[in-house]
Design a protein around this nucleic acid. Structure first.
Lengths: 152, 152
DNA sequence: TTAATATCTAATATGCGAATTAGAATATAG
DNA sequence: CTATATTCTAATTCGCATATTAGATATTAA
């Protein structure tokens, strides 16, 4: 059991790597995938889902790749999660009872609602910038497995 | 995405129904399954997992079934969840980074840890008795789809 | 214009939890 | 003892999220 899917985990880690470069810097899905040890075309598909909400853009061809379209402080964690997983986690009943709601609540409705709100608030206020700030250089270097051009 | 599995949802609802009867009252998995609209042998397997931790016992044969072995106020929600789903939710990293921990934390480690602790505390202090108390008669009747012997 | 590099798209495969099924074992009532 | 009700066990099937693959399309550098 996980709150977010594997695909979203890949996406967030990719964006943390991307977010440490100047906005607009492109990285290929293949390079990012090498870092994450994930299949590159699969990562490509995942990152493409961040295109519609305007989080990233992409360029085909030589020196192309995926790049941020917003400043990291404008990208909220919840936006990334919703783009890929949707918002089902925040909408479903703890007991899986259909029809559960304020009118006919299951015995978990109120308390579980509080917990969900608490998590939701956190995901809304946390930005990619916060994540990039929290990450140590050694942590990120451990995950930069590709050869960066121009970096010895 | 869900915090608990479908099987655990079935188990909790079954126990709520059982918990409203005197301790020791047996109900067949088939009857309970009718209430939950779940396959009965599947429910049987799920409820069997509550046997080892001493939450329920079972009797084969005519008038047999599954019965509570503890008072509802002694059965904690967390015990039910761990018996079926295990405790992976409370042990895994938000980002799925292996090696994530206090020593080499991922950028979510601390905050996510707080949220998990908060939920864990709730699941530890909530008992089956609490759930049975919170449930309204009409709610439970909606879920009692089988013919109860001796009840008109 | 050509070769190399990438994304994009869609179809397919894989793996795992969920669900089903069939039959064996056990208990009870009469 | 027999018929019936029930759990127990293990094998199988199903469905979906995850992952892979192949080919089309686009871009750039030279």
């Amino acid at each position: 059991m996980q709150l977010i899917s594997l695909g979203t985990q890949y996406a967030i880690t990719s964006l943390i790597i991307l977010g440490r470069e100047p906005v607009g810097t492109a990285m290929s899905a293949a390079d990012l995938a090498k870092s994450l040890e994930s299949p590159s075309t699969y990562l490509s598909q995942i990152l493409a889902k961040l295109n519609k909400p305007g989080i990233v853009g992409s360029r085909r061809g030589l020196n192309g790749g995926v790049y941020l379209r917003k400043k990291p402080e404008k990208i909220r964690l919840i936006d990334i999660i919703e783009a890929i997983d949707g918002s089902s986690f925040f909408e479903t009943c703890f007991l899986g009872i259909k029809g559960c709601g304020d009118i006919e609540p299951c015995p978990f409705h109120e308390k579980w609602g509080e917990h969900k709100s608490c998590i939701l608030f956190w995901l809304e206020e946390t930005t990619l910038q916060n994540l990039c700030d929290d990450v140590t250089d050694s942590w990120i270097l451990d995950r930069m497995k590709f050869d960066r051009k121009g970096v010895s």
